[in-house]
Design a binder for these strands. Structure first.
Lengths: 251, 251
DNA sequence: GAGTGTGTTGCGTATTGTGCAACATGTTGT
DNA sequence: ACAACATGTTGCACAATACGCAACACACTC
């Protein structure tokens, strides 16, 4: 069903370019004629999945997308339940708390709660991070068996800083360490000067997994001691894990 | 582009049925063969717009939908900005505060903040309400000229209570009254025993319009005097209207 | 006012989406 | 336990329809 696949590609493009698409963009990236791109977007807009700004003629997300997402959040209602406990964790650590899920080899950020410190690193919900570089990604990958992890990555791992792991073997080794340690670490592997720790939680009934992480800039840790943050995150894991029936955190 | 239109219809169906679809459902409602429905859903799932539960084989919203919705919320960032002031309004009135936008002849609920009273009427974000019966709907419709409103409705208006307006002419009359009054009222026209008042706000730069409403059960108003609620809502309109540059509320 | 970039229609052709059938699997009923 | 039914997923031939090519309309730029 190629036309539908093209339509979905256009939607992905819309996400990547940050929410606004022109007919020409779709035409170029999908390598189809402008006429085709025009009709494609018009069809999507007809049902409300996307909508065209009558002034700029640009296409953006529509209300149907919001409604669909609402259905997703119902499935992942842990996300809503986590809100208050994430706020408490942010208050306690004074740093940004993240929540994300795995999508292929990327982590999709579903929610962020900014800490109280003036300077905070955070992205908007919906953004994606490379799973092998983000703490949340490592935490979620560590739930999977090695062969499945291998199949997710093709070729060398893309690096965003000098610390980023660049081989799958190094990643697998790091993940086995993560399993033993109980939480994942990203030490400037995604952003320079930013460290993050993360744990993964699995809802017993639906089997859905999420990751929660705390990120903090190195300069904010005067003594370089991040044990308090780790303890706070692990405490969060025990509390929230018990609530959603996670097997690894409730024993 | 009929195949894409069918795909979008399937997504609408997914929203209406509450988030989970089976191949048979799509086959029946779109009146296509099961094979077609299967391939259609598989194509949508390929890009991550929807995803199939490997156990139940049911299709639900995917992560791409969440990312698209994030783009929508960026466009309507008034919604995020409104959060705190909505909470204040809910605290002050003790009743549920709603925020919604118009989509055709329906209002899509984007956010609700529940009041402090024990019993509260609220729906989840993403739900749709008939615009001619909801206070938010009337507030948003009152921004449009009569001919455009007529074109939105076809045939008699669907009634959900005995108070629901059932003719377009009656609706237009009510809307002209709404314009004079400055705020919209739904007196048990959507739910029995529930009243709601609403105002519409338009962001100056992007031209996007939202409605904010307060709903309250009749039995919660001992003396039947809802003037305090109206005053609180109008005060909200002046404060928030100024912030987003609404022309009608800032003069 | 010529020139460029853009989005949206007709129209003929070939790609591709369609129903039919068959198969695999899971569920119900007796 | 087996039959009967419902459901999801593949080949395959045929017809529907999505495609590119133009041409047009419109907005900007120089």
């Amino acid at each position: 069903m190629k036309s539908i696949e093209k339509a979905v590609s256009a939607l992905q493009l819309m996400v990547e370019t940050g929410g606004e698409l022109r007919v020409g963009d779709v035409s170029r990236h999908l390598k189809v004629n402008r006429s085709t791109a025009s009709r494609l977007l018009a069809s999507l807009a007809g049902g409300g999945l996307i909508e065209q700004d009558p002034l700029t003629q640009r296409y953006g997300a529509g209300i149907l997308a919001v409604q669909l997402a609402a259905g997703f959040h119902r499935k992942f209602d842990i996300v809503e339940q986590a809100q208050r406990e994430m706020e408490a964790l942010a208050r306690e650590t004074q740093h940004t708390v993240w929540l994300g899920v795995l999508s292929g080899a990327e982590v999709v950020v579903l929610k962020t709660v900014r800490g109280s410190q003036p300077i905070q690193f955070a992205v908007e919900p919906g953004h994606r991070l490379p799973a092998h570089a983000a703490a949340m990604g490592k935490a979620l990958l560590s739930l999977k068996p090695d062969p499945e992890i291998r199949s997710l990555f093709e070729g060398p791992l893309q690096a965003t800083t000098k610390q980023t792991l660049h081989s799958i073997d190094a990643l697998l080794q790091e993940l086995s360490l993560t399993r033993l340690r109980g939480y994942a670490i990203s030490d400037q592997e995604l952003f320079d000067g930013v460290k993050a720790i993360s744990i993964a939680l699995t809802e017993r009934h639906k089997g859905t997994s999420i990751a929660v992480s705390v990120s903090y800039p190195l300069f904010a840790l005067a003594d370089g001691n991040d044990q308090p943050i780790i303890d706070a995150l692990l405490a969060f894991g025990r509390h929230f894990g018990a609530r959603i029936g996670d097997a690894r955190w409730t024993r």
